[in-house]
């Protein structure tokens, strides 16, 4: 690195990167908005914004839970599979009514999160490994429970997916509520302070008497719960349970949203607004590519580039 030789330039570079970390995500969102307003027909319409807001919902909700986990220095690769698990549960328990089915789905998500959390917090398994196993095993389990796509004809679930309140879709209400909850938890509660401290220095947190394991367990459970919420909402919007393809590779988008939003992968920091903007950014990116008729292969390659760029920028300060 040339950083040592040329302090002035290094200072500038650092400032640029620090600034990018802090505000880059908003710049990205703004740039994509400007681009779309200029070049995408019918972009500036209520209908389009509604669509975008609805489409971003699953990734947004996942990334909120993911941000909590990442702030503790962990990772959860299983969120997509937990979505599938929730979808399978909806289909299986719809006979008991939509509310019961949703509750079962949420409990299943929290339980999957609890398994992850227990492995990470109590058994000392690396988060990547524990959640990778859950990613594969959870998907397998959902497929065992519900081998193929199952259409949902329940009115309540359909209403949740397609209806609105005061002109705003239920899905958007739910994600707004969850954003508020997470922001409150992180800023105002002891739990929120603890999870960031644990990510910053776990041993110091232990010696300071923080209930590290309990906190970690709760964080992974929350992440699983959020994933289940995302699964329920995605199922409601799709009006079908599809454990095979729901949430496939979505963990990547969620992780990217978090990292783009300025929460470093090594933990110790948590940005809620940035995470939301990160999810919006990923959504806009994908929809822009699709609207300009680029094939899915391009979308994925572009996403790959964004992820790597985001992690690269995020790493710079983390190292200091």
């Amino acid at each position: 690195m040339t950083a040592v030789d040329v302090p002035a330039v290094c200072g500038d570079r650092e400032r640029v990167i620090g600034w990018l970390q802090e505000y880059g995500v908003y710049v990205g969102v703004a740039a994509l908005l400007v681009f779309n307003i200029a070049f995408t027909p019918h972009f500036l319409s209520v209908e389009n914004f509604r669509t975008q807001a609805v489409q971003v919902t699953p990734v947004l909700i996942l990334s909120l839970g993911m941000a909590l986990v990442i702030a503790t220095g962990g990772i959860d690769l299983s969120v997509g599979s937990v979505m599938a698990l929730a979808a399978a549960m909806i289909s299986l328990y719809l006979g008991y009514g939509p509310v019961a089915a949703i509750l079962v789905a949420l409990v299943a998500g929290a339980a999957a999160g609890a398994v992850n959390g227990a492995l990470v917090a109590f058994a000392g398994v690396q988060a990547i490994v524990a959640t990778l196993a859950m990613m594969i095993g959870g998907r397998g389990l959902s497929l065992v429970l519900l081998p193929q796509l199952d259409g949902i004809r329940n009115a309540g679930i359909r209403e949740l997916g397609a209806g609105d309140l005061l002109g705003v879709p239920y899905l958007v209400w739910v994600s707004a509520a969850l954003i508020a909850v997470v922001a409150f938890v992180v800023r105002r509660t002891v739990f929120g302070r603890r999870l960031v401290a644990i990510g910053g220095n776990r041993r110091a947190s232990e010696l300071s008497g923080l209930p590290v394991r309990r906190t970690l367990l709760a964080v992974y459970m929350l992440c699983g719960l959020f994933a289940a919420v995302a699964g329920v909402l995605a199922t409601a919007r799709l009006q079908a349970s599809d454990p095979n393809s729901i949430g496939q590779l979505i963990e990547l988008s969620a992780i990217t949203a978090v990292v783009v939003g300025g929460t470093p992968l090594q933990g110790g920091r948590m940005r809620v607004a940035g995470t939301v903007a990160g999810a919006v950014l990923m959504q806009l990116l994908v929809s822009t590519l699709i609207k300009h008729d680029l094939p899915p292969s391009w979308t994925q390659i572009a996403q790959t580039a964004v992820i790597i760029a985001a992690v690269y920028v995020a790493r710079e300060r983390g190292r200091r």
């Binding site: 690769l77 899915p296 996403q303 790959t304 992820i307 790493r315």
Partner: peptide
């Protein structure tokens, strides 16, 4: 960069390449 995130990203990239 962290190995898991890089290889997770190239997992997606390789998949995109295969589709292409």
């Amino acid at each position: 960069l962290a190995p898991f995130i890089v290889t997770l990203a190239t997992m997606l990239g390789a998949w995109g390449l295969m589709l292409a």
